[in-house]
């Protein structure tokens, strides 16, 4: 026994701890049905949107398919509900089960816990958008089939054009970074997953409508602020291929701020327990 004390290999690297939490949380999405249900639902919804978009695209426009996919009310309707689903469990479930106590009494800092959970949720969120990359391939298969069956060579509707894909994925990644952080913050505020989900949905809808305030109220002196933070406008400009650095700064700073706040909340809630 006392000899084994000497040979226990230990690390005090905070990165190793972060990676441990990250791996466990990511596994929590992928090794249980939970994550796959979300992935399946998201894919189905993306499919519906694509179907609607293809209808629009028969009246040919100059924009790529991703522009039409994202600049679309259907998209926002689904998009807003993804985040509460992904993040509602993160902190709330730990607290309800009481496992947060074990986590916070291990040699782990609150920052490591919050970041580990954040990066895992964010990774899972990014995974949700990977299946869309298969659309051009699917469309190509469709084209090949059409050519074989009918002998006509159709023009590619959905193509792997870099300009079509980089912008949309960039804005999905950027706004997602903030919204996932927002969801984790909501989850840290309560021990009930349902309350966390409702709170997150409310905040997201508020943020969404703040971005559209100028559409409702017209231009007014403070309107630039609302333009600046309008996620719909960001999505529109990015998915049409205009990559602007202002939203990059906005979303990254909002993400860092929200995560810092979350860390404070987790620490604060220990006092009240």
């Amino acid at each position: 026994m006392s000899s084994s004390q000497n040979i226990i290999k230990r690390t005090t690297s905070s990165f190793a701890t972060l990676r441990t939490i990250y791996a466990k949380e990511l596994r929590g999405y992928l090794a249980v049905p939970f994550g796959w249900v979300i992935l399946g639902c998201t894919m189905a919804l993306q499919g519906f949107i694509l179907q609607a978009v293809l209808q629009v695209m028969t009246h040919a426009t100059g924009n790529g398919v991703m522009y039409h996919m994202l600049d679309n009310l259907n998209f926002w309707f689904c998009f807003i509900f993804i985040f509460p689903l992904i993040t509602m469990r993160c902190m709330a479930e730990e607290e309800r089960q009481g496992t947060l106590e074990g986590l916070l009494t291990a040699p782990v800092t609150t920052t490591q816990i919050v970041l580990g959970k954040y990066f895992a949720a964010y990774t899972f969120y990014l995974l949700l958008w990977l299946p869309m990359l298969l659309y051009p391939l699917a469309s190509e298969i469709g084209n090949v089939y059409t050519e074989m069956r009918y002998g006509i060579q159709p023009e590619g509707v959905i193509t792997y054009m870099l300009a079509d894909w980089v912008g949309p994925y960039l804005i999905l990644a950027l706004s997602g970074a903030f919204f996932v952080a927002l969801g984790i913050m909501c989850s840290a505020l309560t021990r009930s997953q349902i309350i966390a989900a409702i709170l997150c949905t409310c905040l997201m809808i508020m943020y969404y409508f703040m971005g559209r305030a100028t559409e409702l109220w017209g231009e007014f002196p403070a309107a630039p602020v609302f333009h600046y933070m309008s996620c719909t406008e960001h999505v529109r400009s990015f998915s049409s291929g205009v990559i602007d650095t202002r939203p990059v700064v906005l979303y990254l700073s909002l993400t860092v701020f929200t995560l810092a706040l979350t860390k404070r909340i987790v620490d604060y809630r220990r006092w009240t327990r």
């Binding site: 690390t11 701890t17 441990t20």
Partner: peptide
């Protein structure tokens, strides 16, 4: 802790593995 909160969706071995790594144990240990 009282009432022993554990992650219900893990197996015993996985749980202990996670906890060991959280405590900074690494490698073969």
């Amino acid at each position: 802790p009282e009432n022993v909160p554990l992650y219900d969706d893990l197996r015993v071995y996985e749980y202990l593995d996670y906890r060991a790594r959280l405590k900074g144990i690494c490698g073969k240990s």
